[in-house]
C-alpha cells in the first residue's frame, strides 16, 4: 500500500506516474528510512510541512541514496494532487523548497504549454537553493533550476518526459513569445499590471 499509486490516478505520459522516476531510484526510495518514516500516508496537505523543511533539491547522492526532495517528489507522483493544489504550492513563495518541488512536479506531469506558461514567470525568482549530489552541496538559484527544467533532458538524476520545444509551440500559435521582466524593463515598457497582461495575450 505505502508504495502504490493512489486509486483513480490518471496515467501521465501514458504510464503510471510513479514510473517517471526510473526503477533503480524508485526502489532506493522505497527502502529509504526517510520515505518509510516521514512519507508514509502523507497527503497533499501534510506534505507541505515536510517540503518547507527541505534543505536542498537533488536526485541521489553518496551510494545512490535518494534525497528527501526525491522522496517527496515520488510521493507527489503517488498521490497526484489536483492542479489547483500545485498552483497553491507555487504561490506560497516564501517556502522556496516547496516551490522547487512543485516546479519539478509540474515539469514532469503537466502539458507542454502549461509547463512554459507556469514555469517561465519563475525565471525571475533569483533566490538561492542548495543542490545536493554525490559531490556534496552546491549553490544554485531558482531561476537556474527552472531554466534547466525547461531545457535539459535530465535534472536531479531524473530523465524528464520529452517537452515540446518552445519554438514549435510558438509556430503552432499555441503559445506567445516568452516575456522577460528584465527585457521589458530595459526596453522601458511600463509595469505590466496583471489585468493588462491577460488582455494582451
Amino acid at each position: 500500500m505505502a508504495n502504490t499509486t493512489v486509486r483513480g490516478a490518471l496515467a501521465i505520459h501514458g504510464q503510471n506516474p510513479q514510473y517517471l522516476v526510473e526503477t533503480v531510484i524508485r526502489n532506493r526510495i522505497y527502502e529509504d528510512p526517510y520515505w518509510k518514516e516521514h512519507c508514509f500516508a502523507l497527503t497533499a496537505e501534510t506534505l507541505i510541512d515536510k517540503a518547507i523543511e527541505l534543505k536542498a533539491i537533488g536526485g541521489v547522492y553518496g551510494n545512490n541514496k535518494p534525497t528527501e526532495f526525491m522522496c517527496l517528489l515520488l510521493k507527489l507522483l503517488q498521490i497526484q494532487p489536483e492542479k489547483e493544489i500545485l498552483l497553491e504550492y507555487l504561490q506560497a513563495e516564501e517556502f522556496k523548497y516547496l516551490r522547487a518541488l512543485a516546479v519539478m512536479y509540474i515539469r514532469m506531469t503537466f502539458r507542454a504549454v502549461e509547463v512554459y506558461e507556469i514555469l517561465e514567470p519563475l525565471l525571475k525568482d533569483f533566490r538561492k537553493i542548495r543542490y545536493r549530489n554525490s559531490g556534496g552541496y552546491h549553490l544554485t538559484f531558482m531561476d537556474e533550476f527552472v531554466d534547466q527544467l525547461l531545457r535539459d533532458e535530465r535534472v536531479c538524476d531524473i530523465i524528464l518526459p520529452r517537452l515540446t520545444k518552445r519554438d514549435v509551440l510558438e509556430d503552432n500559435g499555441e503559445i506567445g513569445p516568452r516575456k522577460s521582466r528584465l527585457l521589458d524593463a530595459m526596453e522601458g515598457k511600463e509595469e505590466e499590471g496583471s489585468e493588462r497582461g491577460r488582455s494582451r495575450s
Binding site: 533566490r127 538561492k128 545536493r132 552541496y137 549553490l139
Partner: peptide, 9 residues
Amino acid sequence: EVPDVDDTD
C-alpha cells in the same frame, strides 16, 4: 546532514 552551503537570501 548539515549543509555546508549557505542559502540565505
